[in-house]
Simulated assay, not measured.
Amino acid sequence: MCLMPTGSPLPPSDLRPEPHNTAITGRLNWLRAGVLGANDGIVSVAALVVGVAGATTATAPILAAGVAGLVGGAISMALGEYVSVSSQTDSQRALIAKERAELEEDPEGELEELAELYRARGLSPQTAHQVAGELTANDALTAHLEAELGLDEEGVASPLAAAGASALAFFLGALLPLLAILLPPPEIRVPVAFGAVLLALAATGFISARIGGSPALRPVVRIVAGGALALAATFAIGLLLGTSGVV
């Protein structure tokens, strides 16, 4: 316990706030959607435009491919995230409704179940009953959802919000390689795009690691290596198709 110079404990307002499980879960969910969306946007559109640039130096085909990849990818990410989060949300709401019904039908049995959960966690029978009783009196549904299922009724994700966040992240990520390939002169556009994309991937890997509280080196190396491989592969294919006269 932190002490003031006089030896008395710090007042509650001066204590460092600790993160709660629901806050961490919500932050990680948004982080996952944002990072996946941005990374997909960067890598997929970069690979697409670099591949076309390997086949031709004309700007129009590169622009058309990049815009198509950006729009189609953003919509695809939004739909995928919407379906995924909707399934998760439906399951969570079904569990919440089931728990609410059980509390209405058998409150005493649910109280005993809650006390048993706290006994299983190491509390004495008397303390477990006291804790269960006080939590039930305050908010029975919240107490059971947290203890039994690890759920928070207020923390159920919004499918529309998740879809919008994924689409926006993909769009912003995809915009960078598109501009990096279009703005420079044709003779240096591919190296510039490679450099911009790898720097952006390193930044997203670093940011995700910092927000998640993990060391940054491994995720940065992993994401940069994967992006470099994707760019090299599509550029080589485009170059092969272009020099062979197929396109």
Rank of each mutant, 00 (worst) to 15 (best):
P5C: 06
D90Q: 13
L135H: 09
A58C: 03
G109D: 02
A200I: 04
V221H: 00
V197K: 01
L149G: 10
A46E: 10
D139Y: 06
L172K: 08
G34V: 01
A232P: 00
A162W: 01
R189A: 08
L217R: 15
G195E: 04
A55R: 02
V50I: 12
L240S: 15
P219W: 02
L240P: 00
I211Q: 10
I207A: 12
D152H: 06
E154F: 00
A202R: 10
G164S: 05
Q88W: 11
L240N: 08
A232R: 08
P215L: 06
M4W: 10
T142Y: 06
P12W: 04
S87Q: 09
V131E: 02
P177R: 09
G226T: 09
I207K: 12
W30G: 11
P5K: 14
S214C: 07
D90W: 02
R32Y: 05
E102C: 10
E154Y: 03
R189K: 12
A193V: 07
S214L: 14
I181E: 05
A228F: 04
S124K: 11
F171D: 03
P159S: 01
R27N: 12
M4L: 15
G73N: 00
P17H: 11
W30R: 15
E104Q: 15
P11L: 03
A200K: 10
L178D: 06
I237N: 05
I188N: 09
G150E: 10
Q88N: 07
S13R: 10
I42P: 02
A115G: 13
S124E: 14
P11I: 09
P159T: 07
F170T: 02
A68R: 04
A94V: 03
R210H: 10
V49F: 02
E134T: 13
N21R: 15
G238A: 02
